[in-house]
C-alpha cells in the first residue's frame, strides 16, 4: 500500500518470517549490518508492529531483502 503525500511518496513496511531462504533471494543482510535506527525499526516490524508508514527515501531496507536474525525475515516495502 503506497500512500501519496505532498512531501513525496510514503511507503508501508512489514516483515515476515521465511524459511528456507527463497532461491531467488538477491539481497541478504545480517542484523549487525543495520545501523541503530534501522535496527530499531526492524525490531518493531518483527514484533508485529506491521503498520509502519514512512517517506520512501528514508526507508533503510530494500523491498524483498532478507534480514538474518533469530530467524530469516523478508521485508516488504510497498
Amino acid at each position: 500500500m503506497a500512500v501519496g503525500t505532498s512531501s513525496g511518496q510514503h511507503v508501508h513496511l512489514s516483515a515476515r518470517e521465511v524459511e528456507p531462504v527463497p532461491a531467488d533471494a538477491t539481497a541478504l543482510r545480517h542484523v549487525d549490518q543495520l545501523d541503530d535506527e534501522a535496527f530499531d525499526q526492524f525490531r518493531r516490524l518483527v514484533d508485529g508492529d506491521t503498520v509502519n508508514v514512512q517517506p520512501a527515501e528514508e526507508v533503510p531496507f530494500e523491498h524483498g531483502e532478507i534480514i538474518v536474525h533469530t530467524a530469516y525475515f523478508r521485508v516488504t516495502v510497498r
Binding site: P20, V21, A25, T26, L28, H30, Q33
Partner: peptide, 20 residues
C-alpha cells in the same frame, strides 16, 4: 564477500553463493 553471513552458508541455511 559478506564474512558475517558465511556461517549461514556453512549451516546450510543459505544455499546459494551469489547474494553473499
Amino acid at each position: 564477500y559478506n564474512r558475517i553471513l558465511i556461517k549461514e552458508y556453512a549451516k546450510g541455511k543459505i544455499p546459494m553463493e551469489d547474494p553473499l
